[in-house]
Amino acid sequence: MIKILKDGLLTTIQDLGRTGYQKYGVIVSGSMDTYAHRLANLLVGNEEEEALLEATLLGPVIEFKKDTVISICGGDLSPDINGKKVGMWKAIFVKSGAVLKFGKPKTGCRAYIAFAGGLDISKVMESRSTYIRAQIGGYKGRPLQSEDVIPLRRSSADHSQSQASTEDLLFNETDWTIASDMIPNYTSRPVISLIKGPQFEWFKEESQKALYSESFKISSQSDRMGYRLEGASLFLKAKKELISEAVAFGSIQVPPDGNPIILLADRQTTGGYPKIGQVASVDLPVLCQTKPGEQLSFKEVSLEEAQQAYLEQEHSIQLLKRSISLKIKEAFS
């Protein structure tokens, strides 16, 4: 099991979301950076969707109460184990008694900590994701706090040789890591691919142009539910009411004040504001690693280009999955 010694800014348990219940008004939740989430799990031999910890900006302090294997992917929040810098995007054998903590955020703002075997907590509506407002899922339906103890499930990595070889050390990193071209570039000024939203044509021509030509600042009122953007105000050609309909991860809705909001993991299921754009799925991870105060801009892509990019990325994740599982078989044997 693991024990939380310090909670950090916002550390929650997330899997890939509570899908299938949006028709009942239940939000999806789940990890913001699903790419880092999936890779973190693959590196420790878990299924991609296994629940893990999402740490935000200032990470938690975690004590390991048993030998285990972990990995840390996503934003670089300067992780260390007992004061010694520890690598990201690789598997790490950790001894009981070791303490993981985080320092200054270097790139991105969300780190994903996966544990071999996964966190031993029960599912609510088929998911372990934390839904804070409804107080369900995760650990007691809330962010983690110091003194929380979370059990880990058994894993094939529990008694591996590499584990034994760490006798004198509190941790031991594998000598292999994810290929650098598979690690996202978490820049602080990303250019995000955008597909036209369902109500794109409702907006004034200058607003349509501004969307792609201006840069926007991420407001301090941004969280897992959505990022509020500051910059050019976007307005409709004429007053028009939208009948509430479904929204999606990455929908950009524009309330009457003209300031766009990008809807993210904790978004509501439906919305009544017109949607000017929709972030291409492949760019959601990079978007979700930007933090308040940073700038971003958009470039237009067609639906076809977005789907091609998505399929290509899925294909490379499948290839990666195969090579990781071979490596793991060696390492955990």
Binding site: T19, G20, K23, I243, S244, A246, T269, T270, E314
Partner: peptide
């Protein structure tokens, strides 16, 4: 993957 019914629409989420 799932669907969301609303007043005048049904939105279907799919696996590409």
């Amino acid at each position: 993957i799932e669907y969301i019914p609303a007043f005048t629409t049904v939105t279907i989420f799919y696996s590409p």
